[in-house]
């Protein structure tokens, strides 16, 4: 079948790719744009390792056909640091020990950003819910909760 041309903005840069329309956004990011910070953990929208922001909304990029993202504004983990500086959530992850093996970390940070943008001072329950679509097998989540809480507190 025919490939199609799809354009969108990724981390502030306009990008165009010519790919099969049902190619997953995840694969386009990783294979066509070489943005390998977005990970595949399950391929069924369950683990959140592939989470990115699409028009400021958290989505699992393994469930987004690339053509459905045409014209969208996409932010991946590579676009999180600003002006060469780590985002304070990234810094908080380092300090709290929230990243262990690191494979869930990019998606977890995207989920954290979505949570903090919708709810700058989340309760523990809100943090739990906000991260519940991102599975982490290493940490038991406690260090991640702490990282989010630290960011929320520092912005008071």
């Amino acid at each position: 079948m025919a490939e199609c041309s799809v354009s969108f903005t990724v981390n502030g840069r306009i990008q165009s790719v010519t790919v099969p329309p049902m190619k997953r956004l995840l694969d386009v990011l990783r294979e066509d744009l070489n943005l390998t910070g977005t990970k595949e953990g399950c391929g069924e929208g369950e683990c959140g390792a592939c989470a990115v922001l699409l028009n400021d909304e958290l989505v699992n990029s393994c469930l987004v056909p690339v053509r459905d993202a045409s014209g969208a504004r996409i932010c991946t983990i590579e676009g999180v640091p600003a002006a060469g500086q780590l985002h304070r959530l990234q810094q908080a992850f380092i300090e709290a020990g929230a990243a262990q093996c690191g494979i869930c970390t990019p998606g977890m940070i995207m989920a954290g950003l979505q949570l903090l943008s919708r709810c700058p001072h989340p309760t523990l329950e809100e943090i739990r819910e906000g991260l519940s679509g991102n599975l982490c097998r290493c940490t038991g989540y406690m260090r991640i909760f702490e990282a989010i809480q630290n960011v929320a507190q520092s912005s008071e």
Partner: peptide, 21 residues
């Protein structure tokens, strides 16, 4: 002491290279 993990920055920025990368 709680020194930060050696490869922490690579992990939180998504630059750590796993085999599929």
């Amino acid at each position: 002491t709680a020194v930060p993990r050696k490869e922490a920055a690579a992990k939180v920025t998504g630059t750590a290279q796993y085999v599929d990368d």
